[in-house]
Design a protein around this nucleic acid. Structure first.
Lengths: 215, 215
DNA sequence: CTTTTGAGTGTACGCATGTACACCCAAAAA
DNA sequence: TTTTTGGGTGTACATGCGTACACTCAAAAG
């Protein structure tokens, strides 16, 4: 009875050789992500079992779990990038409420990816940790550029913008944590959203008041 | 050659029966902490090997690794509590600079504990995750009370204080992450400290400006 | 002094793992 | 049409794991 968990990720026939390979590869990524287990404690055999191929076939696609993990980082960062892009488009009605809204939607749609990032950010696999750290730094620097375009922040130094942007990225990760852990009850969810908006607003207010005490 | 890594945690004779047991128990905790591996990927045998006892003797002290992990959470939270207590004592010279100073010291002194908390906060062991989440919530509520004692914040609602406190706790965790990952070079460390101070200052400024737009 | 207790021992077992190796056989290349 | 390629197969093995079970033997209790 402990044989298979419904083989969610299985892949069948059809298409050219390249396509089939690509599909198996993606199935491996999906299985690793769906396992809801840290890479370090996830076995190659579990993943291949889920996909429906033999263990040794794993190596036709990745040299190791670590390598799969690094690939997964890039895939998991896409929703985060998408968020930033969406927030950028949104002109400025209520920028904060809109941003939190986008965040909530993305987390709802890509929960496993966010879980993966939070888990492996401090996980056992050094290459994956570094990959996530690098991507988050990149995200921070992009957000810093965006912030610099705001009217009130035009004269800020690059370092100060970066500091503010990194604070926001960190706060967003905390918010994502809260969103992933809150139950289904609408009141609880509303509470988390309202706290999230308040926290971002606090940061924005702080930035508005910043220039009174320069370096 | 791959037999032992110097048995850092070993425990020898001397003392009453209770004392010896307590010492072995602590050695197990130390070994698990020092392993720099997530609980889920850390084997009972590795831990007992490091301590210098036979695997089955583990169960004289803990029913499972998970249980050891929960115990470790409490131990790891002590430095964090100590921080808050120290920061409370410090009157108000430059509260932020002082707090960051305390943080840097505690992280330097208890790096493995902080690493453990960051790792297991999103790790594979549910009971440990929950324990850390609960402790951090508690820390947030204590900090909220402390914040409420500040003159400018005396009229804040409990929820708003909590929101600000949680934002600060989250920011501190980001700062701890940065401190644990930065290299030895003094310039790099100074940079991290300066960014940390700036971020906390940003939050404080935000709180000072908050009341202009209430609920 | 005798009995009981309990931390630590040693063996033994079944199980899951990573991966080496030889193989297969349809699609792609020639 | 023939040859080559390469994703997937199946067997096999050594290793490390958790833990069941029967044990020892000082320290603590009587």
């Amino acid at each position: 009875m402990n044989t298979r968990t419904l083989k969610l990720v299985a892949v069948d026939a059809g298409g050219t050789r390249q396509e089939r390979k690509q599909r198996t590869r993606q199935a491996l990524l999906d299985a690793a992500l769906g396992a809801q287990q840290s890479l370090a404690s996830l076995s190659l055999r579990e993943v291949t079992r889920e996909v429906g191929i033999v263990p040794t076939a794993f190596y036709r696609h990745f040299a190791s779990m670590d390598e799969l993990g690094v690939e997964l980082v890039e895939e998991a960062m896409r929703p985060l990038r998408a968020m930033l892009r969406d927030a950028r488009k949104r002109p400025a009605g209520d920028a904060i409420r809109g941003s939190v809204d986008i965040l909530v939607n993305q987390v709802g749609k890509h929960a496993p990816h966010f879980r993966f990032l939070l888990r492996e950010r401090h996980g056992d696999v050094p290459s994956v940790r570094r990959a996530i750290a690098a991507e988050l730094r990149l995200l921070g620097s992009e957000l810093a550029v965006d912030l610099g375009r705001f009217p009130g922040l035009a004269d800020w130094s690059a370092e100060d913008l970066r500091m503010g942007a990194d604070l926001m990225v960190g706060a967003m990760m905390s918010i994502v944590t809260a969103l992933l852990e809150v139950g289904e009850h609408p009141d609880d969810r509303a509470q988390v959203v309202s706290v999230a908006e308040g926290q971002l607003r606090l940061i924005v207010l702080g930035m508005a008041a910043w220039r009174s005490l320069p370096a």
